[in-house]
């Protein structure tokens, strides 16, 4: 899979890395169960700090898209729903960014999300 980050962008590098994985999952260039490059290796590749990569991986873990295991590295969650889940997370992040632009508070945004659920 392709990782591309822009240090000149306002988006934090860790988030950019997470977005690459989400995108790869969504378009099928990363498959469920696939192992991501080790954080240190990816950091060397891109010339960024290893903690930056780990921050990106940690975010993906919180989103339920990858599993992080000591010694095994980062693995895309197995199961056919992973690509759809990646797409859903991407859309949610877009929605959150839009809400921020509109000047919504966190509470207001969550209320809206809750209303959409019901």
């Amino acid at each position: 899979m392709l990782f591309r980050v822009d240090p000149a962008s306002a988006v934090p590098l860790g988030d950019q890395i997470a977005a690459c994985v989400r995108g790869a999952l969504a378009d099928g260039s990363a498959a469920p169960g696939e192992r991501l490059p080790a954080a240190r290796e990816l950091a060397d590749s891109l010339g960024v700090n290893v903690h930056t990569v780990l921050r990106g991986y940690q975010r993906l873990r919180e989103e339920g898209l990858i599993e992080l295991r000591r010694g095994r590295g980062a693995v895309v969650v197995p199961g056919a729903t992973a690509p759809d889940r990646a797409r859903l997370v991407s859309r949610l992040r877009e929605a959150a960014a839009e809400a921020r632009e509109l000047g919504l508070t966190e509470e207001e945004f969550l209320d809206l999300a809750r209303t959409s659920l019901g």
């Binding site: 899979m1 591309r4 240090p7 000149a8």
Partner: peptide, 11 residues
């Protein structure tokens, strides 16, 4: 992009 950095990795 001019400031963009990229890497590709696959097994």
């Amino acid at each position: 992009g001019p400031s963009e950095v990229a890497g590709w990795s696959r097994t």
